[in-house]
């Protein structure tokens, strides 16, 4: 059932991505409302899949690569839903829906069913750390999507090739503002994620910091986003440069996630799919 819901969600995301593409790239008017609707629907069905697992195993488990991808995709769709409600920027779904689809598809392919959490990793900090860390990543993913749209829109304006694409995308200023809002939410979540991770590690091994790759990547990310926010406040860093930096941050985030999960690197953040 969990897998069926997951497959259904992946399908909804795919159709949503196609509808967004049809609307934004080829200005198919009828597709305009289909994209947002299916992305929201995908989020709901996806939520059912996660709820099923949670009821089944009795706690919020994000153990293993596939579950991580699925949980991440669900949060990204959720973050879009919030942004869409608050800023009526549904067009960001044009980037979010294919991202959610790719992640969910990977989760479907790599699906393994419930895995037990190693007893020594259990504890009160586990769900807190996992939720905060994933939520932070999802908000950064949304910032990435906003930045992509920003660069497309800016390119359209600068090249004067304007055209109809320009009309379907929001203003640069609004995109920039939402990008900043995402960073302003993502950064504290990342900080809390790192701190709870440390507390959790300290709780079971007595060590706050063990120097495993995931921890190092997180610190690199933290420094990058901190610098981005700092420059924004002091020098007014915004627009294209801020968007490029946001995208760089997300690229590092994805690389870190893949490296830790796919490569045979030992650590608590993933046994390594290839190991």
């Amino acid at each position: 059932m969990e897998l069926a819901f997951l497959q259904l969600a992946a399908t909804a995301y795919l159709v949503s991505a196609l509808a967004f593409g049809a609307h934004v790239l080829w200005s198919v008017k009828r597709a305009a409302s289909v994209g947002p609707l299916l992305l929201g629907l995908g989020f709901l069905v996806h939520g059912l899949s996660i709820a099923w697992r949670t009821v089944d195993s009795g706690f919020v488990t994000v153990v293993g690569f596939a579950e991580g991808l699925s949980f991440f995709a669900w949060l990204v769709a959720g973050a879009w839903l919030v942004a869409q409600r608050r800023y009526s920027l549904s067009v960001i779904g044009a980037v979010v829906s294919p991202l959610a689809f790719a992640l969910t598809l990977a989760a479907v392919i790599l699906f393994t069913g419930t895995r037990a959490v190693p007893a020594e990793l259990m504890g009160p900090w586990l769900p807190v750390h996992v939720s905060l860390a994933f939520l932070g990543n999802a908000v950064f993913a949304l910032a990435f999507a906003v930045s992509v749209i920003y660069l497309v829109q800016e390119n359209a304006l600068k090249s004067h090739s304007a055209g109809s694409l320009l009309n379907r995308l929001p203003s640069l200023e609004q995109l920039d503002r939402v990008n900043f809002t995402c960073l302003a939410w993502g950064f504290p979540l990342l900080t809390l994620g790192i701190m709870t991770g440390g507390l959790w590690a300290a709780a079971y091994s007595g060590q706050f910091w063990s120097g495993e790759p995931r921890e190092i990547f997180s610190i690199v990310l933290w420094v990058l986003y901190a610098g981005l926010l700092q420059l924004r406040f002091t020098r007014g860093l915004r627009g294209r440069r801020a968007s490029l930096a946001t995208m760089l941050g997300f690229a590092i985030l994805v690389l870190a996630y893949l490296a830790v999960n796919v490569l045979p690197v030992a650590g608590r953040h993933g046994g390594g799919v290839l190991s």
Binding site: Q153, L157, A162, L166, S171, L172, E173, Q174
Partner: peptide, 8 residues
């Protein structure tokens, strides 16, 4: 129109 695509 164009101004509206730059400024909110």
């Amino acid at each position: 129109d164009l101004a509206g695509k730059i400024f909110e």
